[in-house]
């Protein structure tokens, strides 16, 4: 392998980023922080997609296309997620996810 870049590097980077994002998503109380963590996870996926695109199928560009779609969807997700958080906040005056528990039972 030598010094050449290897897809595994990017995959490991992506996995680490995903793990960090997951940690954030699971451990933060603030809903917006969780949203941010989810963004990190999505970005991790994007790294994977683009890396695979480059190393495995450089001609097809499918990975990049997918990355673009992921980014698009992520933007929509953030917009909607934030709107929901703000809506909840206006009614309940809290952004603590543990207080968002009125959907139980």
């Amino acid at each position: 392998m030598g010094t050449a870049l290897n897809p595994s590097y990017f995959m490991v980077l992506s996995a680490a980023l995903f793990a960090i994002g997951l940690y954030g998503a699971l451990s933060r109380k603030n809903a917006i922080a969780v949203l941010i963590s989810i963004e990190i996870m999505l970005t991790a996926v994007n790294i994977n997609l683009v890396a695979i695109n480059k190393f495995l199928t450089p001609e097809a560009f499918i990975g990049q296309i997918f990355a673009i779609f992921v980014i698009t969807v992520a933007a929509a997700e953030v917009g909607l997620g934030l709107a929901i958080i703000i809506a909840i906040y206006r009614n309940r005056h809290t952004v603590d996810l543990d207080d968002f528990n009125w959907m139980k039972w």
Partner: peptide
């Protein structure tokens, strides 16, 4: 079965992962 539903999404995610 409803009592398994705590309503806390992060717990679900934790269990899921």
């Amino acid at each position: 079965l409803r009592y398994f539903h705590t309503g806390r999404i992060q717990t679900y995610a934790l269990v899921f992962f």
